[in-house]
Amino acid sequence: MSTLNLYESMSGLSAQMADAARANDWDRLSTLEHQVSGLREQMILQDPQEPSASLSETERRRKIELIKRMLADDREVRRHTDPWMDGVRQMLGGNVRGRAMRNAYAAMID
């Protein structure tokens, strides 16, 4: 698969990730992220064989367009996942503080 085709595939998956995030479909989002990761690994292995310098001006513009689109999709995903992650951090942090407080009071009672 050419580098440009990999970018095309990654961009399509990236758009699906944004849709999954909007729908709070975390399982689907995770599955799609793994697929993008696989394509990224493939690109890393392939890139030395097909440097960007070999792309035509039209292909370079398309590559830039795809990267910008993926960055916009990433912002959309983060818009939905960051608040959820903040809630998880607060919950876990509260559990840690609660456990520390219970341990401190238990030590005082003993």
Rank of each mutant, 00 (worst) to 15 (best):
D27H: 14
R28N: 06
L29I: 12
S30R: 15
T31Q: 14
L32R: 12
L32Q: 13
E33Y: 05
H34K: 09
Q35W: 00
V36L: 14
S37Y: 09
G38V: 05
G38P: 03
R40T: 07
R40Y: 07
R40K: 08
R40C: 06
R40Q: 07
Q42S: 00
M43E: 11
M43R: 11
I44N: 02
I44W: 04
I44Q: 02
Q46C: 15
Q46P: 14
Q46T: 15
D47P: 06
D47Q: 06
P48R: 13
P48W: 09
Q49V: 08
E50R: 04
E50V: 04
P51C: 03
A53S: 13
A53D: 13
A53Q: 13
S54W: 03
S54C: 03
L55E: 00
L55A: 03
L55C: 01
S56V: 02
S56P: 00
E57V: 00
R60F: 06
R60E: 06
R61L: 04
R61D: 02
K63I: 00
I64N: 15
I64A: 14
I64M: 15
I67Q: 12
I67H: 08
K68E: 13
K68F: 14
K68T: 09
K68Q: 15
K68M: 12
R69I: 09
R69Y: 12
M70H: 09
M70Y: 11
L71S: 08
L71R: 09
L71A: 07
L71Y: 11
L71G: 05
A72R: 08
A72E: 07
A72H: 11
D73A: 00
D73I: 00
D74G: 14
D74E: 15
R75M: 07
R75C: 06
E76Y: 09
E76L: 10
V77S: 08
R78V: 06
